[in-house]
Design a protein around this nucleic acid. Structure first.
Lengths: 218, 218
DNA sequence: ACCGAACCGTAACGTACGGTACGGTTCCTG
DNA sequence: CAGGAACCGTACCGTACGTTACGGTTCGGT
């Protein structure tokens, strides 16, 4: 009753346990939330008893999977020294491209779907986890870059949260919601690269120190 | 076996049937996809036998509900004659405001949640219906305005689809995905008005004929 | 007044699946 | 080699819920 429930921050997972979570992830992509504990056990070649010992219950298994996958998205921060327009543009494009790749991936779609499906319930953990490690983590990652850009006189904005949300909108547009709803619009790498560059260009047009000060909400 | 399955285009629903669908809608908001046929029958004060006779099965009931709700979103088109910058701005702000109100509403959130939850399955109807009557309908509605704006020399863009998607991103930003994931960010009317105006201003900065031609992807 | 259609309320059926129990196997330790 | 921990595979249990069946009631038409 007391084991297997320590699914909080950065818990330690054995190799075997990660194999199990990988199986869950694949099943999630294939069948969505309809996966059964029996199917997981069969796919992972383990017993249901083990699943329950390790993860508590079905919800715990899903939570562990989402959390584990989310923990993989860590990316290196940017060095705030020596920032010019070229490196700022490159950073933004990199962010945009990474983000578009993530939200277009099958695993991200599957994970967001199950998190959204469970978001209306009392156990609202999945949605919060995905939000925390998706949208919010991206904000925490990008805001230092924006602030450094402002400090270097390259950007002009009043609130970094507002500036970030605009960038988010320019990058994501309608891609995520369409994919979540089952639309077949999965962009190619080339399209992602083009869209990332375009979004960055537009963002700089709005928030660049020279061009866009009038529209930056000052 | 053959009755109750004519749930396609604009089928005719009796008053009583709409009462039932309203009950489904309320239950969907309250408990999400976990609603049971028994609960629907109780809430609507009808028998389960009637539900099955009218709507075929659970999926048919959900589909009818989504379709019925979607059919309510119709809005009057804009007259393309006599378009100046003021009326264009007003139109765009109106669109933005309407859209933000829709995606922030409890019913929209509930409907999108159930549609997304079912989007990974073979019966992908719900996602397609929501997409068709949400994002895509908004595009069909707004594009004539954009084209009229270009014709009047107020806007500059190459592809109306691209321009619309940018507008979509500037308006929606991260609001919808956050709400779907259970974040408590429901904006007030005042915030929606401010955000709609801001998004419109930014869009005109990017695609206005004078200011933004360089960034319009020409 | 009578009939049948439509519908309500509820009981009942079948099944899928979450969760548990248990016997058998592997493997590690002393 | 003995003992035990961990785990696999599977059978089993309980329940929730989709779906069906059925008796009783209302109501419009003749």
């Amino acid at each position: 009753m007391q084991t297997g429930l320590d699914i909080n921050g950065g818990e330690e997972l054995t190799e075997r346990q990660m194999d199990v979570l990988n199986a869950v992830l694949r099943l999630l992509v294939e069948e969505g939330d309809r996966l059964t504990m029996t199917a997981v056990a069969r796919r992972a070649s383990c017993s249901k008893e083990t699943l329950y010992k390790w993860f508590g219950d079905r919800d715990g298994l899903l939570t562990a999977t989402v959390q584990w996958q989310a923990s993989k998205v860590r990316v290196a921060p940017v060095d705030r020294a020596r920032l010019d327009m070229a490196s700022l543009t490159a950073s933004l494009e990199r962010f945009a491209s990474d983000w578009l790749h993530v939200i277009s991936s099958d695993t991200s779609i599957a994970l967001n779907r199950v998190a959204i499906a469970h978001a209306g319930e009392e156990k609202r953990n999945l949605g919060a986890i995905v939000l925390e490690n998706g949208r919010l983590a991206m904000g925490r990652r990008l805001k230092p870059v924006l602030l450094a850009g402002r400090e270097a006189g390259l950007l002009a904005f009043g609130d970094d949260e507002q500036a970030f949300r605009t960038f988010f909108g320019l990058v994501a547009r309608d891609v995520q919601i369409r994919l979540l709803l089952g639309d077949r619009v999965k962009p190619t790498d080339a399209e992602i690269g083009r869209d990332a560059a375009e979004a960055t260009r537009q963002f700089l047009a709005l928030y660049g120190a020279q061009t866009g000060a009038a529209t930056a909400g000052l």
